[in-house]
Design a protein around this nucleic acid. Sequence first.
DNA 1: CAATAAAGCGAACGCTCGCTCTATTTTTTA
DNA 2: TAAAAAATAGAGCGAGCGTTCGCTTTATTG
Lengths: 261, 261
Amino acid sequence: MPNSAENMVKSPVVADALQDMPVDLSSFDSFLKTFPLQGEPLYEAVFKRNTDIIQTQKARFAVANLEKILTATFVVSSVSGFDRMSLRDLSRETGMSMGAIYSCINKKEDIALMVADIVRLSSDLTRQHAMQASSRWSQIEQSIRFHLYASTLLQPWYFFLYFETRSLPEQQQRESKRIELDGIDGFEEQIRAGVDSGEFSTDDPRMVANTIVVLLEDWYLKPWKIRLTDSADKTPGQQERQINRYHQSLVGLVRKLLATQ
Amino acid sequence: MPNSAENMVKSPVVADALQDMPVDLSSFDSFLKTFPLQGEPLYEAVFKRNTDIIQTQKARFAVANLEKILTATFVVSSVSGFDRMSLRDLSRETGMSMGAIYSCINKKEDIALMVADIVRLSSDLTRQHAMQASSRWSQIEQSIRFHLYASTLLQPWYFFLYFETRSLPEQQQRESKRIELDGIDGFEEQIRAGVDSGEFSTDDPRMVANTIVVLLEDWYLKPWKIRLTDSADKTPGQQERQINRYHQSLVGLVRKLLATQ
DNA sequence: CAATAAAGCGAACGCTCGCTCTATTTTTTA
DNA sequence: TAAAAAATAGAGCGAGCGTTCGCTTTATTG
């Protein structure tokens, strides 16, 4: 079976109920209540978007196993990368047999592809949402907030994709770069518009946009740099306070970069 | 032979002639003429710092082979990572036999360790140099310039270490984080001093310091983002112009972040 | 409660890897 | 020119990898 669509990047169109409810950004807490890509719906989405790969028919079983597989993948591969994670490691960590694992995937790489797909989906949600803000400044602020919240919730996913992109097919690699560039372009456009209208002032919109994107990446790539406590103190309150502190830092920095005189 | 010092991080003390001549930062061109870690001296340094590992006795041969091995490593592993680069690939790319390769290393990991050692050495050179500037502002600017120049010259080395750190021994991983944190600390300290003296103004010195470091990393990690031409147009003139443009962008951004009022 | 279908299991397969080793040739050095 | 050092080609080793497949167990259903 010559399946030329094997490594195709899935459509970014957000399907089903995912786009129905608007995401509430007023606090991390309310974000948690409205963001669709988390908990069981997250793994249901993984299942629905990969029915061509997954052998298991009943969603109930597949969803539970996908959760085990992906969670374990993040744990095991965080030690020394996806390549060095053997499927025997994964079998031990999940408590599943090799056969059970292979009823959710066709090949090891599929795990990485599923992660890539979800992160892209989340990125698209972010971009879609950004368009709805009222003023130009709040558009930027909301974009930052959305990205910060989403990448905190999906931190292992974002982290994984960043470091494992290189072991994905070439097309997927290009797609990852494109998404990053789109992110920069988006901010740049908003900044330019603000400069034209006299709301902002900067002589280097591209650099400011790039700085925002790079600092957003820094948040989920290097938790050890910003969040003092990595293992302990993961109470929701602590987490919310840390996000807010970083959000404030970042927004403050951007405000200064765009300030008129 | 119980060699407990196997994975020891080498002393950061810059040996031999490396520290004799001061590095000239007035332009990238003059930097090229004075920075010690490049061309043959670079691979001589690799040799001298790894005589315990390398079997080949005559420096002449060892240096030439190290250059071949490391250059080929960067080429081959840039495709899909160090783990997926087999030593048979390396043998083909270098044109050396397995035996010849194994007279320069004891195990595959040694290649990565050599790279890590040199990048650390370069980072230490950067930090040492920064202390010599006159004013506080020029200290920051010179640090940025030095880092930008060095990481351009050693781009494959820096890039490799960033993405392969995870497959190094734990001690080396911690060392990499420490270096990054030291870099941030250094900038933060200078900024705080400037704020205290009224030269600068910011309410978040740590964030500004972090931004600088992250944007410096961005330069060597994502050439495709900034430098339009990756393969073609690698003339020294083009390169110098691109560095200068990025340096100007970065310094301009930092200046605005530290501006009083 | 059988009967059937789905899910789960794990030993075994073929293969590639890092690494070693030897016999031989080439190059360098004194 | 003779001894020493370096490099070659490649067969071979055992470990560990991703993947498969015949089988057992569990769940579903008429």
